[in-house]
Amino acid sequence: QKEELKEKAKEAVKRGNKDKARELLKRAGISEEEAKKIIKKIE
């Protein structure tokens, strides 16, 4: 489940939808700070 949400978040970032990505990562139980780092890494 968590990995699936991370994959979806990756796709969202690639489409330029960072808010959606952050939302998905939060749903995966990832903190706001972690989510920001992950999104930065994907960009």
Rank of each mutant, 00 (worst) to 15 (best):
K2F: 15
I39S: 01
K8D: 05
L24S: 00
I39G: 01
E33A: 09
R15M: 14
I30F: 15
S31K: 05
S31W: 03
E43W: 08
A35G: 04
A12K: 02
K6P: 02
A9N: 02
R15I: 09
A28N: 02
G16M: 04
E3G: 07
E7S: 07
I42D: 03
G16Y: 03
A12D: 02
L25T: 01
K18G: 05
E11H: 06
G16E: 02
E7A: 11
K20M: 13
N17E: 14
S31R: 05
A28T: 03
E3Q: 09
L5H: 03
E33H: 08
I42R: 01
K37F: 08
D19N: 09
K36S: 14
K41E: 15
R27N: 11
A9S: 02
R27G: 06
K20I: 12
N17K: 07
A12M: 13
A35C: 05
R15W: 06
K10Q: 07
R15E: 12
G29Y: 00
K6Q: 11
E33R: 09
A35P: 00
R22S: 07
K41V: 11
D19M: 10
Q1E: 12
R22I: 15
E23H: 05
E32P: 08
K18D: 04
L24W: 05
E11P: 01
G29T: 00
K2C: 15
L24N: 01
K18H: 12
A12N: 03
I30Y: 15
K36E: 15
Q1K: 11
A12V: 02
K36D: 15
I30K: 04
E3R: 06
E3T: 08
K37E: 14
D19H: 07
K8F: 07
E34R: 05
K26D: 08
I38W: 12
E33T: 08
E32S: 07
G29L: 00
K10T: 08
K41Y: 12
A12H: 10
I42H: 06
K26C: 10
Q1C: 14
D19T: 09
I30H: 07
D19W: 07
G29D: 03
K8A: 13
K40R: 11
K20L: 15
K40I: 11
K37P: 00
G29A: 01
A28C: 12
I30A: 05
E4R: 10
L25Y: 05
A35K: 01
E11R: 06
I38E: 02
S31C: 06
K20A: 13
G29Q: 02
D19S: 08
E23T: 03
K6M: 15
E43C: 10
G29W: 01
K37T: 10
K6F: 15
R15F: 07
E33V: 08
E7M: 10
K18I: 15
K37S: 12
E3S: 08
A28L: 09
E32A: 09
G16D: 02
R22A: 11
S31I: 03
N17D: 15
L25I: 01
A9L: 10
A28P: 01
E23Y: 03
A9K: 00
R15C: 14
A28S: 04
E33G: 06
K2N: 11
K6V: 15
K26L: 15
V13Q: 03
I30P: 00
A21G: 02
V13P: 01
L25H: 00
K18T: 12
A28H: 03
E7I: 09
R22H: 12
I42C: 05
E34Y: 04
A21D: 01
K41W: 13
E32N: 07
A28I: 05
E7G: 04
I30M: 12
R27S: 12
E34A: 07
I42F: 14
N17I: 04
I39W: 02
E4W: 15
A21V: 03
V13G: 02
L25C: 04
K20V: 13
V13C: 06
E3H: 10
K14R: 14
K8M: 15
E34N: 05
I39K: 00
K18S: 09
L24M: 06
A9E: 01
L24F: 08
A35I: 15
K14P: 01
G16Q: 02
K10P: 01
K2S: 12
K36F: 11
E32D: 13
S31H: 05
E43H: 05
K36M: 14
K37L: 12
A9W: 05
I38A: 02
K8T: 04
K37N: 12
E33N: 06
I39M: 06
I42Q: 05
K37G: 11
R27H: 10
R27D: 10
K10E: 08
K40E: 15
A21I: 05
